[in-house]
Design a protein around this nucleic acid. Structure first.
Lengths: 195, 195
DNA sequence: CCAACATACGGAACGTTGTTCCGTTTGCCA
DNA sequence: TGGCAAACGGAACAACGTTCCGTATGTTGG
């Protein structure tokens, strides 16, 4: 019943017990470190908190992006799955879009440094970039399409661009009481409307 | 006739000739380095290009922000001064606002890494932050006020927040052909309108 | 013109962080 | 239980920002 294997695939030869244990320990330590020091927390800090050497981190998560993805995968999945749900339950496609973007923004602004990392052109964050885009852009595109088909918004804006704009607006939202990312995003979404 | 002094003030005891020469050399080298490698270019690279030691850079420009401000001061001033001009020459305050924001965006997206630096919470960038805000927020506020008084836009958005949002939208615009910061900013400004 | 002094310079050195690498340890299976 | 592959730990290296001090140089009073 319980999936004693490491990943979802069944082909991998199965990892050693200590390796599996360490992977989980690292995920927990990283999650805690991200909360207290942001996703830019030094690798050594995570290693210390987990009680392992830095080599162990790099063995399990070759890049920081892999670690971030692993830590936040559940929440990203939840956000992605909320898209169709909202589309079905909202009064209009535009309302669904706004609600969904709200979810995304709430997620981003509560993860210190994540919005910054998402836009980084550093090669180490390629995986992060790719994962978020693969998972969320199609959902956004669906909502965008629905709203466009309903004639509520202009049809010349791509999901990728919008997601990126929203992500950008979330940068630095946590350390600045005079800047409310949610409000700016609301403005951006309002700007999509036809009249 | 010629201002042989270093700064604008007359109280400073006057700097040594080699110091003044180096300051100019550094500004030129930094400007060139910023263009070719972005404003994050390593201090050593700038020093090498200028043919001076790193100590000399830190003596003239204690933080990277000081150097960036010095390099771009002219362009920021020009942008600030364009505000009132545009307000006088445009058909409506909202049009003036849009044009002015366009100027700002053009400036930002052509300076690799500058938009990122502007939003950095790193203490070394405090000066940069302060300078841009001091110089541009009042101009933006004037345009915003005029448009609000004319009933063209909602009145509940502060200049600081808008500038910051626009700055955020410019992040990463240079390295991503699929992301057009200008279009996103246009959307944001459109979102300000009252129907 | 020269000496002496303050100013400015150069770059070595240090701290922090990411990343790699290898000698050692440990789980697993025959 | 012995042996081997897997995994571990952390030293070591590289890149970068930043500081510091011995040295060089321009300035100025005599």
């Amino acid at each position: 019943m319980v999936d004693v294997d490491s990943g979802s695939g069944s082909s991998a030869p199965r990892k050693r017990a200590d390796a599996r244990r360490n992977e989980q320990t690292l995920l927990d330590a990283a999650a805690a470190a991200f909360v207290s020091s942001g996703v830019d927390v030094p690798v050594r800090d995570i290693a210390a908190k987990a009680g392992v050497g830095v080599g162990t981190i790099y063995r399990h998560f070759p890049t920081r992006a892999d670690l971030i993805v692993a830590v936040y995968r559940h929440q990203v999945e939840a956000c992605a799955e909320a898209g169709p749900t909202l589309l079905a339950s909202s009064s209009t496609p535009h309302a669904a879009l706004a609600s969904w973007i709200d979810l995304f923004v709430d997620f981003l602004v509560t993860k210190h440094g994540l919005a910054e990392a998402l836009q980084s052109d550093n090669a180490a964050f390629q995986t992060l970039h790719a994962y978020f885009l693969d998972r969320l852009v199609p959902v956004c595109a669906e909502l965008l399409d629905a709203a466009a088909k309903a004639g509520e918004i202009r049809a010349d804006v791509e999901a990728f661009e919008l997601m990126r704009g929203v992500g950008n607006l979330c940068i630095g939202a946590a350390n600045n009481s005079r800047y409310d990312a949610r409000r700016m995003v609301t403005l951006l979404i309002a700007g999509l409307r036809l009249h």
